[in-house]
């Protein structure tokens, strides 16, 4: 494949955004009727549906932990989510992302409140265009909130990439594939705690520091969107102002 130039000389990216501009992000809560909590996110062209079940009895029983709740996450890409049909069987990458998702959310959940139970988190990628793990983590934290699972904070996530020597925020598929480096990060915004940070490719020390700052800025924007979505969904049940 011939490489296209992804960033113009005046700093406009492949899809028309500025270097530190996010794609339009829209969260929706309570989309699945049968799940205890659910959320749907449209993150540019990335679309993900997340369902949360539990806390509930552990099955199989031997998975139950005596002192806290067992958290099980499943990240899965639908066969039609990418250009070339993806086999529905879990790939190495999906197994890794399931683990990454779980570990990014675990610090936020009060797992010790529910010993011997299980919380199931299912993320189904309906359409993928980069940053799927970030979108899945952010939506999963909303689905957990919708399920009423007690949490220390929401979890917001964002990726930074180095493309053609420049750091860009909110990575699309093209930039991920052609870029020099990709760094997804998840934080608990009101605690200022990082729950996930991964990096592939190469960054200098200065670039890394800049990337973390840039990703944090992106996460805070996601956080604002998450809060907006929660308010939008839950204000239906009340009409008086109570804070």
């Amino acid at each position: 494949m011939e490489k296209k130039k992804l960033i113009t000389d005046d700093g406009i990216r492949y899809d028309g955004r500025k270097l530190d501009e996010l794609r339009p992000i829209k969260f929706q809560i309570g989309t699945l009727k049968n799940a205890d909590g659910s959320a749907y996110v449209e993150w540019g062209r990335t679309k993900i549906l997340v369902g949360v079940f539990g806390p509930r009895e552990s099955h199989p029983k031997h998975l139950a932990l005596a002192d806290r709740c067992y958290i099980r996450a499943r990240y899965h890409m639908a066969p039609f989510s990418v250009e070339e049909r993806k086999s529905p069987a879990p790939s190495r990458r999906e197994i890794e992302l399931s683990k990454v998702m779980r570990e990014a959310l675990e610090p936020a959940i009060f797992a010790e409140f529910f010993p011997r139970t299980t919380i199931d988190i299912f993320a189904e990628v309906l359409q993928a265009d980069g940053s799927t793990r970030c979108a899945a983590i952010s939506a999963a934290s909303l689905a957990l909130t919708d399920a009423g699972v007690p949490m220390r904070d929401l979890v917001s996530s964002m990726a930074v990439a180095k493309v053609e020597g420049k750091l860009v925020l909110d990575v699309i598929d093209q930039e991920d594939k052609q870029g020099d480096s990709d760094m997804p990060m998840a934080i608990m915004p009101s605690k200022n705690v990082i729950t996930l940070i991964q990096m592939d490719g190469l960054l200098t020390h200065e670039e890394f520091i800049q990337s973390v700052e840039l990703a944090k800025k992106g996460c805070m924007e996601v956080y604002a969107k998450q809060k907006e979505a929660l308010e939008e969904h839950f204000k239906k049940t009340m009409d008086r102002e109570e804070v």
Binding site: T145, A147, G148, V149, P150, R152, F234, E242
Partner: peptide
């Protein structure tokens, strides 16, 4: 801090949150 989505209340020096969702 609140741990759930709900309505916050302060009564007799005690902060509580009435949950909107939960088991």
């Amino acid at each position: 801090f609140s741990s759930v989505v709900g309505l916050a209340e302060l009564r007799n020096e005690t902060v509580t949150v009435i949950p909107l969702r939960g088991c």
